[in-house]
Design a protein around this nucleic acid. Structure first.
Lengths: 230, 230, 230, 230
DNA sequence: AATGAATGAGCGTTCATTCAT
DNA sequence: CATGAATGAACGCTCATTCAT
């Protein structure tokens, strides 16, 4: 009765300590990878900055690339959990999209290293595609699709839009803005772009006269006019 | 008098030969960089595939990165010249945007190595920003801005949109689609995404009352249809 | 008075348990070293296979090499004790030599790991020469010398032979055959080489006049008796 | 006509220089491997002692082990060529065997590093078995077999001996003596063991009474006479 | 101009060994 | 006594780049 809790405590303490060390490594690694890129970053630097020996890093991660891949897992999960939670509280597909974009941009804004690693390193690594971290991201992205499809079903969005394309527009824009923001030294605020961006995507950029009369003339391109899509 | 023309010829021949060797190196380098990425690619491989010695490669390019940076210059110039040429022939900002996007996508579609190098390597390299190659790209991109601004000025586009943002939506989407296309092994056709994408961006995704009736005619812009705006 | 016997029991139990753990480590280590060689073998693997922690292994053995060196001690002692025992029962130096060789070969045959460790690892390690394990072997080998010298003294062997050389021939041959046997994946039977080998060494390879008449009594092994060579 | 010989000279000079460097590396490597063994030897040490950069060593040899394996090739070829040459000049199988053993022992005696590498390192490396170097050795060893078989055919050796076994006795003894000689710091002379060794192997160690009468008894040891083995 | 040859500089990874509990 | 955890100390190997011809 005396020993049992003690040893349990010890184990827990050990577990916690290890957890803490692991997180420390991830934190520092994120920093270094974000600043230097994958190749320029060295385990030696991560070890020195985290005050954990290189050998110990290899106790927690099998490989330099393995360490890299394990960086986004937690943050990504956090973001997408939060997303799922919020989406339940919001009515209207447009509003939901706005929330999603806002969540992405605000996350990137506040987790710069995470953003840089995703945008500049992982997005282009084929091996990352088969990773736990990427799985989470993929599932998170499905939410966007779902919202778009709901919007179509409810009549809030047009029936003839291609959900994959709309999702690509949204994500492409987010990533482009974020990448630019990172590459140019993060001068301004990402969040303030959310509203104009969503408005633009939802309403389009075309100015609309009030007369419905002209609608039909407005949209069919000459070269397609005789042949309805598909 | 005997020698002079000969030596001139020789010089010209030498120039041409050097030019040819340089182009050969660039062509092979593009191939290798596209397939392997920057770090995985080696000068040795480029030398072997181009049948030009490693040392000679360093006669033409100062560093491996220098070689990388000089790859896009020509292709980019070609594309943007073409773009400028075409834009003069097209009336209407929406149509111009469509042409721009089409040009981008078709170029990427047909110059896969170029696309891969831009999307996966150069886009994220800060040193590339200060490069001749990037200058060309930047100037090309200004065209998009110009078109958007013209569209706003002419009333074809809404007055309250942010041109930088619209440009970001367009480029972000193009890049996202292209990157996905590359990362997934280039399965389908990029070009066929141009029209739905532009339509979506121009008109937005929000459904509007009474519209369904007319949708098959949807895309003819007023100014093309034969009837003056308003 | 209550405690004393108990603690003694505990101690004994502890002793036995420790002994058992130590033997377990040696057994597993022999296996691993034999399969992988010294450098390729790792303490980690030995620990995992023996289900004893790496740290504990270092409680029993000071270094990896120390562990290696302590492997042969017991087996060697066993063999040489057996040898000494048997030699007392056998008359005649030639027969004694035959017994010795038989004992070696049969031991190697049945303790493959032991054989591999001796032949492929320890034989070439200078530090092993100063080891307890090697001492035992050295003393065992002295027996061979003794037998040879007795043979000379008794007139059974020629007076002009060099005992060191004869011993070298015997041991060299044993080791060569054993090493080959190990290196080639232990295809055939070592023991069956004992008789022809000893015969050869004792009688030499030179043919002698008139000999054929008597040979059937001398050497024909039972299983060959029906088909006289020639 | 002016250039051609010059460039040829240059090329030859380059070739020769490279050859020289390669030989230098092999020489130094032999030294280091012999002194330290394979694992303890480092490329760094070989580089330093040969005054050739580590990187350059890897221009000549693909791998540390590749370097090791290429050490014996030349020496081995030399020895076995010499052997083949001499054997033609010698009459009598016994004499030929003597020459072979002498050649081995004298070679080992004078190429200590070579001897150490063969005896302590390569003999036990399974990958070496599939090497050019080992091929040469194998073919050299066939000579011994050939001589033994010739001796049997000519009646010089007994008909009932097993050539493989005799070869094993010879090689085993050579290797044992050489290994011992190396392991004990090479105190005495290897060559002086050749004659007694060959005599011993050829004539056997059994003392032979002069009386032909006893021949039949001679070989059946008294203590065994009534009980045929097995 | 062209290149064969040489190398400096670096880095990821492995393990035997130790320490704290 | 047993062990989980931590690490120091190496080392083989790669390649972009330069030099000498």
């Amino acid at each position: 009765m005396k020993k049992s809790p003690k040893s349990k405590e010890n184990k827990m303490a050990g577990k916690n300590k290890m957890e803490a060390r692991k997180n420390m490594i991830i934190r520092v690694a994120a920093e270094v990878f974000a600043k230097k890129g994958f190749q320029e970053a060295t385990i030696a630097e991560i070890a020195k900055k985290s005050k954990i020996s290189e050998a110990s890093i290899y106790e927690y991660f099998t490989t330099k690339e393995g360490l890299l891949f394990s960086i986004p897992a937690e943050s990504a999960k956090e973001i997408f959990d939060l997303m799922e939670f919020h989406l339940k509280l919001i009515k209207g597909s447009a509003n939901k999209l706005r929330a999603i974009v806002y969540l992405f941009m605000t996350s990137y804004q506040h987790h710069t290293d995470f953003a840089a690693i995703i945008m500049l390193i992982l997005k282009h690594n084929k091996r990352f595609l088969e990773t736990e971290g990427h799985l989470i991201i993929r599932q998170g992205i499905k939410n966007i699709n779902k919202v778009i499809e709901e919007g179509i079903a409810s009549g809030e969005f047009r029936k003839d839009i291609n959900p994959y394309l709309v999702r690509s527009i949204i994500i492409g824009t987010i990533e482009h803005l974020t990448t630019n923001w990172i590459m140019t030294g993060r001068p301004d605020n990402l969040e303030k772009l959310v509203d104009p961006m969503i408005d633009c995507i939802i309403e389009g950029i075309q100015s609309r006269p009030n007369e419905p009369v002209h609608w039909s003339l407005r949209k069919v391109p000459a070269w397609e006019a005789g042949s309805p899509k598909k």
